[in-house]
Design a protein around this nucleic acid. Sequence first.
DNA 1: CGGCGGCTTGAAGGACGTCAAGATTAGTGG
DNA 2: CCACTAATCTTGACGTCCTTCAAGCCGCCG
Lengths: 251, 251
Amino acid sequence: MTHATQTGPVPEAIVADDGDELRFCSTCVFGRVCLPQQVDKTKLHELHCLVEHMGPFKPGAHVFRVGDRFNAIYAVRSGTIKTCFYDDTGREQVLGFHLPGEMIGLNAIHPARYPCDAIAIDAAYVCRFSFPALATLATKMPEVQRELFRLLSKDIGNAALLSGDYSADERLAAFLMGLSARFAERGRSATSFRLAMSRGDIANYLRLAAETVSRVLRRFQDQGLIAVEGRDVTLGQPAQLEAIARNLLHR
Amino acid sequence: MTHATQTGPVPEAIVADDGDELRFCSTCVFGRVCLPQQVDKTKLHELHCLVEHMGPFKPGAHVFRVGDRFNAIYAVRSGTIKTCFYDDTGREQVLGFHLPGEMIGLNAIHPARYPCDAIAIDAAYVCRFSFPALATLATKMPEVQRELFRLLSKDIGNAALLSGDYSADERLAAFLMGLSARFAERGRSATSFRLAMSRGDIANYLRLAAETVSRVLRRFQDQGLIAVEGRDVTLGQPAQLEAIARNLLHR
DNA sequence: CGGCGGCTTGAAGGACGTCAAGATTAGTGG
DNA sequence: CCACTAATCTTGACGTCCTTCAAGCCGCCG
């Protein structure tokens, strides 16, 4: 038994330690805030006070739902969270998959309500940051403010990426390479990993049909670019995948 | 003389007055910052000091370019600005059209370089806000910080909208209704307006071919939903367009 | 065992892109 | 004011990529 349900520790899981008064959980998005300069300890303490650990969330459990009033953003501590909304016909549109160390809920600031669901697809733990408290703290700690601006701006770029008109091949190649890079950042293999999400989720994320995802993956495998076995993926030719993600950009 | 081209005033143009020590240009995105509460006058003065009026930009002129080092965000004062980047084959991908009172450059905070071009498609004027100065001010004025967070978050939502998998009909209906709403906010007709952008620009923005845009507009016209004459558009049945934008969401 | 959800594979159809040719408009200089 | 060219826009015919529909496979759980 690998992951998901309750019984036993997860061998490969990325799990943050719990941090302490002077350090954040090792995967925390705000970790970088503390590193550059020695942060005033009382301030660091304040930052800690507005963080609340939550979990575990079982696969399928909601961290927040469309329409909930916005009052906090969340950092993924372990597991994988998908964010998604639903069009008028009920079709799910996945906005993103979020790995440990990534932030969710930033798109809720403006409408003041969450515009999407956040659902655990792994067993997942998150850190909850009260947003009013965080905003107040940001006025006192420019590093925190800067980090928030950066995170928000980054999300704009990510959303724009997905919106380009790319072929199914490009989308999937880019998806795999993106995951690879994010796993590598977290100290895991860049060439061999397990997909936490179903083909259907991937398809919804990439705005493709599940069948198309299946077919493209098979073709990539036939071409020797990757090896797929269920949800386990090994990248055989990352460079070539990279090229597809970049060059195949229309025709 | 108002602005724009040299010969005579432009009857319908949205032009901001220049503001004064105690007021911003009437269209300014930061106008709302000052309204709710009486802002400390010295602080308001500070905010004014970091604003620089720029323009006119002729159609085709760049406000900033891909790769330029990020150091300021811009508010459109009059005219229309499009933001766009280019894929590896050189094809333009329009990220957005920005009307007076809207902000551009927020997506540059994270990479610290502008990830896109900003090009005037009208004769345009903008206000330049030094970002380091603005961020510093934001630590002193929570209203400013809140407004920046709101603007950033809003852009995430906008970018995500475009990324959904919608049909050409939905995209165009949503585009027209969106423009209509934004014109209305600025005190102009919600049902009759002139498109500042070419069909090609619209197509690039919506990730469609220019021919498709042309065809869908014609069909909308044949169905009595709109009247099109060159770049002048009149919405005959806004409710029905709204329905297409919402309901036609895939079949 | 039977059922169910996730995944794969094939065949057919559709929506949109591409190509190509006109039509309309705008821009420019005589 | 009128040619002349160059964009922009429209319209048609055709091709293609992807979706849809349908069936079969596999692993999982009651």
